[in-house]
Design a binder for these strands. Structure first.
Lengths: 159, 159
DNA sequence: ATAATAAGGATAATCATTATCCGCTTTAGT
DNA sequence: ACTAAAGCGGATAATGATTATCCTTATTAT
């Protein structure tokens, strides 16, 4: 039971896009290189972020990606959800049914309630932090490195 | 990102063992049949529960498994931990490092803190419920079915 | 001694995740 | 209009974790 690495990559990808000037756009390949991710698969991740309305894509020769929302309005949870999907961490396999030989009607499952509560507790923490607050943190911790990243972005961005 | 089905099976296995009279023991194969689980793989799960000191095993011709602790002292979390292991839900792949070209020293990772907090929030819910409370619930919901299960246990148990 | 059971290792089957490839569409620049 | 650079979407392969099976050994009641 491990979170997909795609979530981590997506969060940092969005942090990079957050540093992009307005109207500018960054090609997916540039981002994947900076993150050390597989370019082709990383494009699939970006697609999911687009589908989730977190970023927008511009096709064509000067195309690329940029944020769709303000960083304060993108929660880590949104990114998690975009990549992992809405499927819950636990899904009953009906073991209780077999064990007690239950009728179809009463399909309740002891564990399901508890697990749902646990999951929503987990999610609520992910909902607290936004891209804006992450960027603040990272900028306070490594202002110099962020500066360098800014310059790299200016090289690679288009428009 | 899905919890192993082994967690669900283990929880219900332990609920069955909880209904076992003192000194009695239940063969692993009987349990797996009742749960509709693969017998050989289910034995592996039982081994993990033994290693975690949640149940004890008795080898030999009248052998089987029984609870090691009182049901009030077995939390759902203990079972989860026994099966899933202590590995956390999120583990950083060092994407941030590559992105900012960080030195080894400052190996902190933005996301790791948040994810750890989320995970401990998730776990704290699993720590609330015990086998005893689960048994109460199930017995209140399906007293008749539990009765039937009791009888089945009396047939299958040994010692 | 035999039979039933757990223990443990090796290995296979299955499934989700990650990765690659290819053909298509869109658009800026010439 | 043509070309090149980018995103889009489908098919498919590679990888890795989970689940499942098999076989051999150890333990113990009869």
């Amino acid at each position: 039971m491990q979170m997909k690495t795609g979530v981590e990559q997506s969060v940092y990808a969005i942090l990079i896009l957050n540093m992009l000037p307005d109207k500018a756009v960054l090609p997916g390949e540039a981002i994947s290189q900076q993150l050390g991710a597989s370019p082709t698969y990383f494009q699939k991740l970006l697609r999911k972020l687009v589908s989730a309305d977190l970023i927008t894509s511009v096709p064509g020769v000067k195309g690329g990606f940029k944020l769709r929302k303000k960083p304060e309005d993108i929660r880590v949870y949104d990114i998690y959800l975009a990549i992992e999907g809405k499927q819950s961490l636990y899904s009953s396999s009906g073991v209780l049914h077999g064990m007690l030989d239950l009728e179809e009607e009463n399909s309740c499952c002891l564990l399901t309630n508890l697990m749902e509560e646990a999951e929503s507790s987990w999610k609520s923490v992910l909902k607290r932090e936004t891209v804006a607050s992450l960027y603040e943190e990272i900028n306070e911790s490594y202002p110099l490195k962020v500066q360098l990243l800014q310059e790299w972005i200016k090289e690679k961005m288009v428009l």
